[in-house]
């Protein structure tokens, strides 16, 4: 095993990592068997849990570290990184 795949992603969405992004991200992460972890500095979140993603308090400009660990990691990392890096998402919260 090579250990987890890692990618640093900068949040550019003006609302930061908001509910809709968290929902979309966790839903996508849930489709893969790999473990997905998102780190904001010292804080880390389970990528399959939208609440834990919200608690990262990732503001616009934050550099997040995405870690995907498992058999389908290579397949998962691109779409997951794309969600975090998306420029707008839709402008709403729950």
């Amino acid at each position: 095993m090579n250990g987890p795949m890692r990618r640093t992603v900068r949040v550019i969405n003006p609302l930061g990592l908001h509910w809709r992004v968290a929902e979309q991200f966790s839903r996508t992460a849930g489709r893969y068997t790999s473990a997905v972890v998102v780190r904001n500095g010292e804080t880390s979140a389970d990528g399959k849990s939208p609440t834990s993603l919200i608690l990262l308090v990732a503001l616009p400009g934050t550099e997040l570290v995405l870690e995907v660990d498992g058999p389908d990691a290579a397949m998962a990392i691109d779409p997951l990184a794309a969600i975090l890096a998306a420029p707008s998402g839709e402008d709403y919260t729950i």
Binding site: W19, R20, A22, E23, S26, R27, D46, K48, S49, P50, T51, S52, Y92, T93, I94
Partner: peptide, 13 residues
Amino acid sequence: IFGAQASVFQDPG
């Protein structure tokens, strides 16, 4: 908006 709410209620974490 409510889709996001539903996802929280089902959040395994």
